[in-house]
Computed example of a mutant assay.
Amino acid sequence: MARLLLVLALVGTVFWVYAIVDCALQPASRHRGVGKPAWLAIVVLIPVLGGALWFLVGRVRRSAAAVARRAPDDDPEFLGRIAVTSDHDERIRRLEEELAQLDAESDDARFRAQRDADSATPPKTDGDDDARGQRGAVG
């Protein structure tokens, strides 16, 4: 009889420690009923019964958590974000086009101004310069 009580005490202690560790390591989204600190208090303060309550009531099974999640094409929130993202992409595309047009216009204006400035003033030549403006060139 003493051996049976010793074995039951050992199994109860192992179960109690396992319940504490399991409760502590579970993410907060997998706790049912009360919060994580309350479940830890229940499991620690009521050794075997607290662990049994944790596994039967407080812990959400992995399969139940997976059912709660939806595939992206079934999730209206996700689908709504896609529309917003495509609106942002369209706006970015339009802004890039406008920027490219402005760059092209400013490049054309600079090119025209440079060309007009080059044609208005003849190149300066010293006695030692050739037609291209290089000194000491033999021509």
Rank of each mutant, 00 (worst) to 15 (best):
A2V: 13
L10K: 09
T13K: 04
V14K: 06
V17D: 04
V17R: 04
V17Y: 08
Y18K: 09
Y18L: 14
A19M: 02
I20P: 00
I20K: 00
I20N: 00
I20R: 01
D22P: 00
C23Y: 03
C23A: 15
V34M: 09
G35H: 01
P37K: 06
A38Q: 03
W39R: 01
L40T: 01
L40E: 03
V43Q: 00
V43K: 01
V44E: 00
I46C: 10
P47E: 10
V48S: 02
G51D: 03
L53I: 06
F55G: 05
F55A: 11
G58F: 01
R59S: 12
R61A: 07
R61N: 06
R61E: 10
R62P: 02
R62V: 14
S63W: 06
S63C: 08
A66Y: 02
A66Q: 07
V67M: 10
V67L: 10
V67F: 05
A68C: 08
A68Q: 14
R69K: 08
R69C: 09
R70V: 08
A71Q: 08
A71F: 09
P72M: 05
D73Q: 10
D73K: 02
D73P: 02
D75M: 04
P76G: 04
L79W: 02
L79F: 01
G80W: 00
G80E: 04
I82F: 07
I82V: 15
A83P: 01
A83D: 05
V84T: 10
T85W: 11
S86A: 12
E90A: 11
E90P: 00
R91P: 02
I92P: 01
R93E: 11
R94F: 04
E98G: 09
D103T: 12
D103I: 06
D103A: 07
A104S: 14
A104R: 14
S106T: 11
S106L: 11
D107S: 10
A109T: 07
R110T: 12
F111Q: 13
F111M: 14
A113M: 06
A113G: 07
Q114C: 08
R115C: 03
D118G: 05
T121V: 10
P122A: 13
K124H: 12
K124A: 15
D126H: 05
G127P: 07
D129P: 00
D129G: 01
D130M: 01
D130N: 12
A131W: 06
Q134R: 11
G136V: 03
G136L: 09
A137M: 13
